[in-house]
Amino acid sequence: MRVCRLAAVASAFALAGCDGAGGVLAPASPDARLVASLGWWMFASAIFVLIVTLGLVLVGANLHRRGEPRRISFRASVLLVVAGGVAAPLLAIVAVAISGVVIGDEVEGPGGADGPWIEVRGELWWWEFRYLDEDGEVVAVTANELHLPVGRRARLRLVSDNVIHSFWAPNLQGKTDLIPGKVNLLYAEPETPGTWRGQCAEFCGLQHGLMGFVVVAEPPGDFARWLAAQAEPHRVTEPEGLAVFDRIGCAECHTVRGTSADGEDGPDLTHLASRQTLAAATIPNSRGNLGGWITSTHTIKPGAKMPSRIPEPEDLHALLDFLESLE
């Protein structure tokens, strides 16, 4: 079973150009760049302090002459304590406080906020992204895949109606929690086109470990086209598969706009086939993985809320045909 699972996940996995590695230190937005350079500065200073202090410990402890202790004058001792124990930390504190305030204000500020307005909903254990228009009306809904226009500052509205989650796309921005009863804001402004991984960072239960998402940054024109396509309802081309979809109960939880399926517990599947991944960025979106996810859900993600279904082979094929038509 384990081998199957590994094979299912690992073999076909080639998340198109996912530059996840590097995270915080591979910034792809002005905000992340600022914080990364702050991090480097603090690292350098910390290593300097560590070396100096440990050096003093080792030197001081070996200064005696063949077992004859050397006295240090009271004044010199006081100087040592004041310089190392008070002045140096004080300098560091002032530096940390001021840089933290200035940079914090910058990266958390709206700064024009000329990008799309997106509601991010944390679910158990996947992400819903609702693209809103100026009036706050929902234009399009997608899951586990956030598309952003390059060079625009998108405004993310973070909400949850279950447990606390935390939205973290390290290449773009620091994390912010999604807390029931509270609305938090976050701004994301990718500089270059690219694809990155993000993940839930606040412990949220069984599948916290695999509650990932993909961020895709594309030029504003491509983004607009993508959004327009996502806003379209589905035009049914595979009625047999849709019938299976209804019959085995998928429609109770999933919505496919343009059909009678309007369940609200699971991700909106209207444009499932356009997504790169399945199961909260756990496995690549392929026909094989889709079948595996439906029939052995809990082998891939133990504890996931979706019940697994094992339809007859021809039904499964029809269902997969339908799902693959959701472009």
Partner: peptide, 26 residues
């Protein structure tokens, strides 16, 4: 943020008092 960084002062004082105690001792 200011308060969290402040803890560095008492900790620093401790460490440097120990260094001063050990300085040149056998």
């Amino acid at each position: 943020m200011a308060a969290s960084a402040m803890i560095a002062i008492p900790s620093g004082v401790q460490v440097y008092c120990w260094i001063a105690t050990m300085w040149g001792a056998r």
